[in-house]
Design a protein around this nucleic acid. Structure first.
Lengths: 201, 201
DNA sequence: ATATTTTAACTAATGACATTAGTTTTGAGG
DNA sequence: CCTCAAAACTAATGTCATTAGTTAAAATAT
């Protein structure tokens, strides 16, 4: 139904519409500007009306996190389709960084809220974890080694994304080259260390 | 007139005191709780009084970032004193992660504000960059390779810190082991790749 | 010592925001 | 047509940052 100009018909909002609009705000203006006031203005309603669909600003942030993780999983999963080994790691990494570049605000929300008992959020994160685990198969790592490697790769990808986005890399040096080299170096390390003994520090 | 000396009136506040108090707030309760209202309450004054010393909340955040970077540089520098090679990389990394663990709020501010023209902030970041560059010497990297490696190591350290702090690592696996393995793997990668040709992607 | 200047503190006021409570209106089902 | 739950609204409260203008104390000059 049409968007009334005044205090007219219902706006026909639902939770999903709110999340999509909030994601647009986040990517366009940054997460600081994702306020209920701005979201309500964008949707043509008053702020309190949003409470019919979401659980306040914290609730919206959680929904954004889940949405972001699901979208992130999609691009990562699509990128690794039919690829394996080192090529899969590179493809997945490019997809991850690309997502963060294309959706800076939404990406930021994905790390926000590890609330306890939020099964949807945990599930969304779990799918990404499984995907990375799968991509890291075939490098001769045992189960524990794979888990450590997942942490390593996630650290690399998240750290690179964050530093890139807020200009932490001030040096005039090609970012794509940096990323490719970083991933290649990490994989080479996994390969080179595979044969060695696990020397304690 | 000479402006080199301080003139303290009633409560004896100055910029440094404010920054220290704000850093305590940040580490104790998180950056969201670092408000001018909370800071003023902690210091026993009213919020507007703080404007005599800082440039509003954005100014305070910038000061916190500089302070955090300087403290971070101190621990990183101290850790690498008299060490070199792989041991220096490990020591520096442990110091970095340790700082982030001990000062979660202050660490968070160090990435916050890359404002333009802020020379003190750039200087503080530059010192850390130089230190990492120095630690990465002696691995047979050329100049460009070293710059890429700095980006890599910073990504690793920042990504690991962030994910660790907000519980992104949900798995029941020793964090110290993960970090040590990650650094060791990265260094091994640098070593193993040193001889190879720079194959394009 | 007294006067002047500087400045750090204050009070008061404004505007943005989130949130709650209570009210009206809408749209769908009986 | 009537009823009812949901979705929108208005009104109100409280927190926060920020600005303007005031007061008083410390530092400095006379």
């Amino acid at each position: 139904m049409g968007k009334g100009h005044r205090c007219m018909a219902r706006a026909g909002l639902d939770r999903h519409t709110l999340v999509l609009a909030a994601a647009e705000l986040a990517d366009a203006h940054g997460m600081e500007e994702v306020t209920l006031a701005a979201l309500a203005a964008k949707l043509g309603v008053r702020s309190p009306s949003l409470y019919n669909h979401i659980n306040g600003l914290p609730g919206l942030r959680t929904l954004l996190a889940v949405h972001g993780l699901e979208r992130l999983y999609e691009v990562m999963s699509a990128a690794t389709e039919g690829v394996s080994g080192e090529a899969a790691v590179h493809a997945m990494s490019q997809a991850y960084i690309g997502f963060a570049r294309q959706h800076p605000g939404l990406y930021q929300t994905t790390l926000k809220a590890p609330e306890q008992g939020d099964t949807t959020l945990e599930a969304a994160g779990g799918k990404i974890l499984s995907l990375i685990l799968q991509v890291l198969s075939g490098f001769g790592l045992d189960e524990e080694g794979k888990l450590h490697a997942v942490r390593g790769l996630r650290s690399i990808l998240h750290g690179f994304s964050t530093l890139e986005q807020q200009g932490g890399f001030g040096m005039p040096l090609d970012l794509s080259v940096s990323l490719t080299r970083l991933i290649r170096t990490y994989i080479a390390g996994i390969r080179c260390m595979g044969a060695e003994a696990d020397s304690p520090e």
